[in-house]
Design a protein around this nucleic acid. Structure first.
Lengths: 227, 227
DNA sequence: TACCGCTTTGATTACCTATTGATAAGCAAT
DNA sequence: ATTGCTTATCAATAGGTAATCAAAGCGGTA
């Protein structure tokens, strides 16, 4: 259960301080003197978290991170000496999880490591329950649509039809397939479909959106690009 | 109560880092992958604060802010990658409340968010057990509701139903889901639900609150925005 | 037991939506 | 331009849903 932390720093004193603090916090610590050692050790051991100094000769922390990230999502915490060094640590290319600037308090380092480690087992954040198509959004739970942030109230049937369109944005729906998809295959007149289309168009036009639904002559209707 | 934060960033890793940090700080977090999603989500949910990445494809954070500001004063905190972007943000017409430059420490972000939130509502941390939605408050321990400070006495069933609504504002509840959520899945007539809705509406109307619960024809009922 | 307040329900009315046919407008090929 | 077909529009109707109310059922209390 006690976590295995791999620490890479070229400064012996720092290594000692960190090692002492982490072991005191019940973690298993492995120390690397440079990036090369860290990468090699990582390849053959199961590590729960890496602590990487950015400023190391030869292979610096960022490069180590890049290398690690090719094969692993193991959390990485960076140590940096100056603020300007830490460009994009938390950003896209690198993929760090947090950073600490030197000088740091060992206690803070431990605290931050614990935070990151807890995250691994934490629940994923709530998923946004909406379908998106350009400026159009379908809010399933709220049973409502928005266009460019404007709420557009739809009746149950209109909502079902629009939802059908958004779920297959580029597809052309014949009136028959609308009957099957938005209703339960009940037969209704083609005029009924037209009528609902008209109402939907009207409501969106009122919100400033012309041309949400396009007519494909002789075939049916489809959702426009509507960006 | 626990605040609802909407975070928009196109970088998955950043979203994860932020989401974890904020949830750990007791906030409710919703993640958006782009500005469009954020705007549309915002339209139908009560959000206490937005975190917007400035650098997003399509609709960037500044544009999102501009859009939001047309209708709302909800605090906005920007994430920016470069310092030179920041001058414009704070100075000009945009209307952001703070900014954080990447890379940032999650802890710093939380701290700044808390500062902003406290500025908006300087409230004592005493009363914990209540749900809030605009002027409506559900006092769980007292088993009572208040609207705009006025106490509204509710029966047990009415209280259970209203609580269900407040826990998911703007969500549409079918009569069935009300039975499941507010009762214990016991079958009762649809008229019973109507009746309780009527009583709740009546009591709030007496307190000066019309349109607390909206009817979604053919679907069910939902709590109005009601700010 | 009788009372009282809350819950439940059926009946009635009011309201809203869906549907449709008629008519006008639009499109495409001759 | 004409013709034949497809789509748009509209208003009226049918059908379904919600609001309201009164009365009955239920459970606790005096």
């Amino acid at each position: 259960m006690n976590k295995h932390i791999l620490v890479a720093d070229d400064d012996l004193h720092i290594r000692e301080v960190i090692s002492f603090a982490l072991e005191k916090a019940g973690m298993q610590v492995t120390l690397a003197e440079d990036g090369r050692q860290a990468i090699d050790y990582f390849a053959l051991h199961s590590i729960d978290l890496l602590v990487l100094d950015i400023n190391m000769p030869e292979l610096d922390g960022l490069e180590v991170c890049r290398e690690i990230r090719k094969t692993s999502d193991t959390p990485i915490l960076f140590l940096s000496s100056r603020d300007d060094e830490i460009d994009r640590i938390l950003g896209l290319e690198i993929g760090g999880d947090d950073y600490v600037t030197k000088p740091f308090s060992p206690r803070e380092l431990v605290a931050r490591i614990n935070v990151i480690l807890k995250r691994v087992v934490a629940k994923p954040a709530a998923v946004m329950n909406q379908l998106q198509h350009g400026k159009l959004a379908i809010h399933l739970e709220q049973h409502a649509a928005t266009w460019n942030g404007l709420v557009i109230s739809l009746t149950a049937t209109e909502f079902a039809m629009l939802q059908l369109f958004v779920r297959s944005p580029q597809r052309v729906f014949s009136r028959d397939s609308i009957m099957t998809g938005a209703y339960n295959n009940i037969y209704i007149s083609d005029r009924t479909i037209d009528s609902h289309i008209r109402h939907i168009r009207q409501k969106f036009a009122d919100a400033g959106c012309d041309a949400l639904i396009e007519t494909v002559h002789g075939v049916g209707y489809k959702l426009a690009l509507c960006q």
